[in-house]
Design a protein around this nucleic acid. Structure first.
Lengths: 190, 190
DNA sequence: AGTATCGGATACCAATAAGTATCGAAAATG
DNA sequence: CATTTTCGATACTTATTGGTATCCGATACT
């Protein structure tokens, strides 16, 4: 007993399980992803799942926590507002290639929160943390009267716009190109 | 045989089924909504479902087609760009009270399209039709160089922003008030 | 080495839920 | 009024799947 260094082997199966689950969930959604299929995708069996996770739900949450959308804008050190918004647009554009999988997770998690109230809070927090991190920088960087909207509102809008673009990209990839994302954010600068 | 005027009674049970399905799906999502529960909610039984729909999927699609998000902006007859964007913001704000149910449908339908490619197109079209209808008006109303972004891009952004705000509202209702929606759209005017 | 522990496989169980067969009553049709 | 058709209820079948019990082999400990 006591300290388990989480033997190399175990760490690997855990990783494979998460990878398998991620893949299958991205393809079919969580509910339609059976544990048998997930395990098979990982080259393992359901036994491996249950010796690493208490339940399907636990696996779900583990996958989710690794799949939060996260924007990483690189603001130009001394750029103006427009340049910074453009950087946000570029960061959003970087999410697009993974949009389909991401949207699947978000949709699934969203539905999950319909019947799991305590999780709604968590998802909200995770979104805020991942999406609007850059927004805080913006607000800190420019005086309120330079911003196109109240400083509390801007993060929400950035988040909403990013999320919306990711979703749209899934349905109509050609209509939501990186350029569109950048144009959308730049337009916020006026 | 031949023409059935769709007897009063039948029309009513059909309506009740759709209402029941709508309610249950909004609460739990489509996959977790059992036909037994839907029928019970409608005061009927599964038999009624199968004598009105070929399958659960058919019921699903019927519900969906009645649940597309639809913005109905009322543009001021001679308003400027900002006033028109504000009208869009107001139209978006009107969606918020029903956001939770709507987002459930959208999420569910979105997941559905993961495994039903032909439906992805339909959902994309439905969104475009419902969301960006007002955008076409905008584009028609103002010369391209008055708009904050290329005329093909604007509808996409309006749609993305609306969808994003609806989603966000589900998770953090207090952060996405009607005022926030309006401010977001107005900011597009610069 | 010998023994205990752990991780994963196999086989099984039980619940859920979609779909089907059938039947009865009410309404439409003549 | 008779008869046919329609609609919805009931009961059943069947497949899926989350979860459990158990067993075996490999690794870790003394």
């Amino acid at each position: 007993m006591s300290s388990r260094p989480l033997s190399r082997k175990r760490a690997q199966t855990l990783e494979r399980l998460l990878a398998g689950a991620t893949a299958v969930i991205a393809e079919k959604g969580f509910q339609r992803a059976s544990l048998d299929e997930i395990a098979a995708r990982a080259g393992l069996t359901k036994g491996a799942v249950y010796s690493n996770f208490a339940s399907k739900e636990a696996l779900f949450l583990a996958v989710m926590s690794a799949q939060t959308l996260r924007m990483q804008p690189r603001f130009p050190p001394d750029g103006d507002l427009r340049a910074c918004l453009r950087a946000l647009g570029e960061a959003c554009a970087e999410l697009l290639p993974r949009a389909r999988a991401q949207a699947a997770f978000i949709s699934e998690f969203h539905l999950y929160t319909l019947t799991h109230d305590e999780m709604r809070q968590r998802l909200g927090d995770a979104h805020a943390a991942g999406f609007a991190a850059g927004a805080a920088d913006l607000v800190a960087r420019f005086p309120a009267d330079c911003l196109p909207m109240p400083p509390q509102v801007l993060p929400v809008v950035i988040q909403a716009l990013s999320l919306g673009l990711v979703y749209q990209h899934c349905l109509t990839p050609d209509a939501v190109t990186p350029e569109v994302a950048i144009a959308a954010f730049e337009a916020l600068a006026g």
